[in-house]
Structures are given as C-alpha cells and as structure tokens.
Design a protein around this nucleic acid. Structure first.
Length: 716
DNA sequence: GAGCACTGC
C-alpha cells in the first residue's frame, strides 16, 4: 500500500530529501484515512448566525456591519425560541449552568432577557469573557440589537478602556476586570446577576471568580442583601465538576447551529508531523477546488517559518491552483497578521499556518479544511526553582474538537487529524486547568486582598500544595504579607495590589523612590510586562542582530530594553521605525499603554516621579529590590566563570538551579563574565538558561534584601 | 551560541 503514512513512519531518513526536493514523493502519495466520523454538533465557538465574531480586532467589526433585519435574525436563534421556559428557570434558581453549543445565541440573548425582566432595577448584569476583544464585540453587538448607544445601557470594561456609565445595566467585561472589582468589593454589590461565560476554558481568573461569586452569594444572603444570581455558561464539557461545585444546581442544555465538519484520522502513526502536514496539504491541494482554504495548526514561529518555506518551494513544481501562504502567530507584527483576513482572488488558494492563536482567540472565515497536527507548545513551571519549560505536547480531545470546529464556519467542512483515532481516544478529555500549572503569586495576593483565606478558598481544582506554599513564601519575602499561615496584607502589600502587574514588579516600582529612579523603573517594568519587543525573522537574523547593536548596554539586557523603549518614545514615525529596527510595534505600543497606566497608579499613591539620569546602578539596585529571588552566581572552578568567555560560564541560582546565560543576551560574550547576575526568567529548553540578564554587584543583595541574602549564603 | 504557545489586569 502506497500510504503516505507508511512512508513517513518508516523512512525517517527521507525527511531531508523531502525538504530539498520532495515534489516527487508528495505527488504520488494518496490520502489514506479511516473512520469517517461526522458529528453534526461541533464545538465551534463563534456563531455564524448572530454575527458575533471573536477576532483579534483586526477586522473592523463596527456596528455598521450589523444587518437591518437584526430583530428577525434574533428571533431565529435557538435561545430565543425557548426564552419563556428559560426565563422561568432563571427566575426559579439562584445558581444555574447553561450549556450551549455555538450559535445558540446564549451570550448575546440571555443578558437581554434578564434585563427586560428587571427594567426598573438599579443593579447591573455582568457578563465575563476571558478575552478583551470578545467582551468588546459582544457589547457592541448587544447595544446594536437593543438600539442603544454603546456605553449607555450596554457597556463594556476591559483594561485601558471603560465604556460604561451610571446608566449601564448590561456590562460585558473580562474576567480579570471583575476580579479587580472584587478586590474593592468582595460582595460585588452593584450586580444582581453575574454570568461567567466560556467557563470551559478554565482560565485562572474564571476559576477564582467561581469561588468569589459562590462566597458572595452566601454572604449576601447572610447579610440579608439582595440575592446574587450566578449563571455559568459553557460549551459542552465536564459538567459534573461545575455541578458538584455549585451544590448540584440545575443544568440547561441549549441547541446550537453549526455546519457539519467531517473528521478524518490518519490511519497510521508517524513521527514527523511537519512532514505529514506538508504531505496532506499537497494532496488536498491537488484534488480540491481553489476557493477551499486551509488552516494548519502548528506549534510556533520557527516551525511555521520552516513549513512555509517548504510549501513555497514545493508549490513551484506542484499541480493545482496558485497558493498564498499566511503565517499567523501572536508575535507576528500586526501588518503581517492582516494578510490572513484579506480575500484571495478567485482561482487562488489560501493556506494559513497558525499556532493556537487560531484555536479560540482569532477566527478566520471561509476555512474549508483544518489540518490538525495534534500538538501544542505548552509552558510549565517548576515550583522549587521557578524554572519554566516550553515543551511540545499532544493536545487534549477538547482542543481537537475546537480545532476541527474551525472548518466550516460558513459551510460544511472537514478536519484532517494527523494522528490515529486510537491516539485521539487515548488523549486527555481536557487540558489541566491553568490554575494547577502556573505561578500563583499574583492571584494569591488578590485573594488575600479580598480578605479570603487561601487555605479554605473554594476552588473546583486545587493547585498543588507546594505551588501555593511557594507563592505565599515569595509574598512574604517581598514584604506583601505578614506571615504565611494566616496571611494578612502589610501596608506595602496593600499598595502592591493597586498595580496590575506581577507582584515582583510592583515591589520594584514601590522601591523606586528610594533610588530616585521611578521614571526609568516605570519604563522598564512596562517593557518587562509585555511580550518580547525584538522581532527576529528566521532568515533575517543576522541583520536583526546588527541593528540591535545600537541599543546594547554593557550593563546587560535590562538597560538595553530601556534604551529600546526610550528610542521608541522619541521616534516620530513609530511603525516605520520599528520595522527598520526589527522591533515589534504592537508590543512596544502595549508597553507604552502599560506605562501610562502604571504612572497613574503611582500618582494616586503619591510616589515621587524622579529620574536617576545616567546613574544606572541605581536602577539596577531598584530592580534587584523586587527581583532579588532571581539572583545567580558564577560557579567557581573548572567550567565556571573563569574559563573562557561568559558563554561557557555556569551559574547557580539562589534556588540552587544550574543554568547558563542565554546566548541571545548581551552579556553572553562578556569577558570576564559577571560574578553575579539578576535574571528575569529561568527557562529550560535544551539546557537551562537565564533570560534577560543584568550584572549586579554581589554586595547589593545584602543591601536590598539582607534577610534573603543571609539565607542564600547559608544555603550555598 | 539558542531559538518562546496563548490569554489577562
């Protein structure tokens, strides 16, 4: 049998020849799939009926797009048809779960139904979303349906943008925003109803809100305040976990409206999913009409760029219509992301190579075929050393359904899974919720600030004990709480909660007045709070590194970042300037916004905004006062700092982990290598690396964190 | 001398 998977699996050595001249092989391969599952109810998050899109904001989704017969469309929604019964149930119960497939209209219609029932009420209905774009577009949509101005009866609240007024009664907001509000008012008194939407995504914030609203309900009852209605909305998933958490509350199922997606599994296992993806692309390419666009799920930038190069090469000699290949990942500059939404001319095929960004955050219309490699890059975290690890892993079944659902948004489609049906069946039904696998320092601080006890706080899934312990210990070391067993916020801790950033960074800002460097600290923390500002395309690496030289400071990566930020602020034509300097305009602009938000918090706290000018030691000491747990010392002896350049130098962190300076850092080649460094991140890839590093004087640690320094000394 | 998925305040 001439199956491609047979050849992929067995002839690993063919990979190279495939990359160079694979046309031959690709051409003669045939599709060989088994087990044609055809689920009619796909997990597809967006509705193609009610027109609500969740995208990255690149499509201009203004309310002008909404059709005139908006009310007519509303009336065809499944949720509208059953509205009477639904309302009765909602009235009867204070807590309930609504499971609804895509297209049921639950997120746009149910808040309106409730609003119509309590017109005279002075209370607000909150609807949370994990993503800001979703909160914004949903609010715009519902405002249009209700024929009101956005910000009047219907509004939204996301970071950097609050479009609400005292008259707002239906408020769409990100779960992070509601959590912030809960810190100021744990009983959430202004709300009569809180709808937690997309609950199946299980973000840390939603998970914590589950507990907050449960406690608020109980406390409001005890204090004889108006009752709080809680509605959990979710796509089909493990409903038992939610039901158990909410004392067996009722569950309502709503029908959805989606086009069928046919699922194909590969017949055999194979080791090289990149190769399999390219094979599948060209088989489909040769046999399907040009206007059928493809969406391919891959793991990251480098992989996407490699596959893209392969496709372009093979396409030159391959039969089939002309191809337009679009990469799509979060780090890609927005102008290049836009290509994905541009209509291709008739007779041309679009192939989108995307990371997980296309799984839920961003929607590409008119995708006919999804090619699912079945893998995802995931970040995990080690509680004892603080090391983070990025690894490619098999994604869950839920993710598989989600990806498949991306085909046939506008018509019936198909999904090709590059793994076997048996492999699929063996996978986890869902990924572990975020809360059990990420650092909790920030969330713990918020929780303590609301007056809750972290040890008894109700959660659907509890994080590992040592994860909680590690977070509390760090908060204690930062001086945010008085003790770890029955933690209470200190004055410093209270101030720290005012900042929407990592507590380590808030500590830096709060210490900055001591070092006369709040101006610089604000800029640096803002840049550190956003994503990588350097954009390094695979084949223009050399040039990108050359351009970077002018920003480099011998003091290390932090001051280099500060230089980049300062230069960005001065540049008159920022977009163009970023392009020329291989910098990410989106991330630098984000840092700019973050800085102004942080500045206003500092002003509210009456912190003196002064500059240290060129005395950058001050800034580094200040940085150390928040990041003192991120210290590493050069190991003495063979292979240590003395041997060769810093590139070979080995370091050991305060937690005792061995690591080297990351080669992309500016201190990597410093000679002699610094004896002590401060790092932002400890990342394990092939080896352990210290990422974003500055040289510090060993005695500084004693000055800024004497207690911690003592403990480090006794451990070393 | 490596190479980093995605959200959110």
């Amino acid at each position: 049998m001439d199956s491609k998977y047979a050849s992929v699996g067995k002839e690993k050595e063919n990979k190279k020849s495939f990359e160079n001249n694979s046309l031959h092989k690709v051409k003669k391969m045939k599709l060989c799939y088994e087990n044609n599952v055809n689920p009619t109810k796909e997990n597809q998050k967006e509705s193609n009926v009610n027109g609500v899109k969740q995208n990255n904001g690149l499509n201009n989704n203004s309310s002008n797009d909404i059709p005139e017969d908006i009310q007519a469309v509303r009336k065809t929604l499944p949720v509208y048809v059953v509205r009477g019964r639904l309302l009765e149930e909602i009235k009867k119960h204070n807590t309930m779960i609504i499971m609804g497939e895509t297209g049921s209209g639950k997120t746009t219609q149910i808040p309106q139904l409730i609003y119509e029932q309590q017109l005279e009420s002075k209370f607000v209905i909150a609807v949370t979303q994990p993503r800001r774009v979703a909160a914004i577009t949903l609010a715009l949509r519902v405002a249009a349906e209700m024929k009101t101005e956005i910000g009047s009866i219907v509004g939204y609240s996301v970071r950097f943008e609050d479009v609400t007024s005292p008259t707002t009664k239906v408020k769409y907001l990100t779960d992070g925003m509601l959590l912030r509000e809960a810190v100021a008012d744990p009983l959430l008194k202004r709300y009569s109803t809180i709808i937690l939407d997309e609950a199946h995504e299980r973000t840390v914030n939603t998970d914590i809100l589950f507990g907050i609203v449960k406690l608020a309900q109980k406390d409001r009852k005890e204090q004889k305040l108006n009752p709080l209605k809680v509605i959990i909305m979710s796509a089909t998933m493990d409903v038992d976990a939610f039901r158990n958490f909410y004392d067996n509350c009722p569950v309502i199922y709503l029908e959805g409206r989606t086009y069928p997606v046919t699922i194909y599994h590969s017949k055999m296992r194979h080791e090289d999913y990149q190769y399999a993806a390219v094979c599948t692309i060209f088989q489909l390419h040769a046999t399907t009409p040009a206007n059928h666009d493809f969406l391919v799920f891959l793991t990251g930038q480098e992989e996407i760029e490699t596959v893209l190069t392969n496709i372009k090469q093979i396409a030159k000699e391959s039969p089939g219509p002309p191809i337009k290949v679009c990469p799509l990942y979060a780090g890609l500059p927005a102008s290049k992301q836009l290509q994905v939404w541009k209509k291709t001319p008739p007779g041309m095929r679009k192939i989108v190579l995307a990371t997980n960004i296309a799984e839920a955050s961003v929607t590409i219309p008119e995708i006919k075929f999804v090619i699912d490699t079945g893998v995802v890059k995931e970040r995990t975290w080690c509680t004892s050393t603080g090391a983070e690890r990025l690894a490619v892993r098999a994604c869950s079944q839920a993710a598989g359904w989600q990806r498949a659902g991306r085909a046939g948004r506008t018509a019936a489609g198909a999904a090709y899974r590059l793994y076997t049906a048996r492999d699929f069946a063996a996978r986890l039904a869902h990924n572990a919720p975020e809360i059990v696998r990420c650092p909790l320092t920030s969330s713990m601080l918020m929780l303590i600030a609301t007056g809750m006890d972290p040890s008894t706080f109700p959660l659907i899934d509890s994080p590992p004990r040592d994860s909680i312990q590690a977070s509390l210990l760090l908060l204690k070391e930062l001086g945010a709480i008085d003790n770890e067993n029955d933690p209470k916020l200190t004055i410093l801790g209270k101030k720290m909660t005012a900042f929407p950033i990592d507590p380590k960074y808030s500590k830096v800002l709060l210490c900055a007045p001591e070092y006369n460097c709040l101006e610089e600290a604000l800029s640096l923390v803002a840049v550190m709070s956003s994503e990588n500002v350097f954009h390094t395309p695979l084949h223009k690496r050399e040039e990108a590194l050359k351009v970077k030289q002018k920003f480099i400071s011998p003091l290390g990566d932090h001051i280099t970042l500060l230089n980049v930020y300062k230069a960005f602020c001065k540049a008159p034509l920022k977009k163009q300037w970023c392009k020329e300097n291989y910098l990410n305009h989106k991330n630098l602009s984000y840092a700019y916004e973050v800085r102004s938000q942080l500045l206003s918090v500092c002003q509210r706290l009456n912190l003196p905004i002064t500059s240290c000018g060129n005395v950058l030691d001050q800034l580094l000491k200040c940085l150390l006062s928040g990041l003192f747990t991120n210290c590493a010392w050069a190991r003495s002896g063979a292979g240590g700092a003395g041997a060769g350049g810093a590139g070979g130098a080995r370091y050991v962190t305060s937690a005792g982990a061995a690591a080297a300076l990351h080669p992309a850092g500016v201190l990597h080649c410093a000679r002699p290598p610094p004896a002590a460094v401060l790092y932002t991140e400890l990342l394990h890839t092939k080896r352990s690396y210290l990422v974003t590093v500055s040289a510090v004087q060993p005695q500084w640690l004693q000055q800024v964190a004497p207690e911690f320094a003592r403990r480090c000394r006794s451990n070393r």
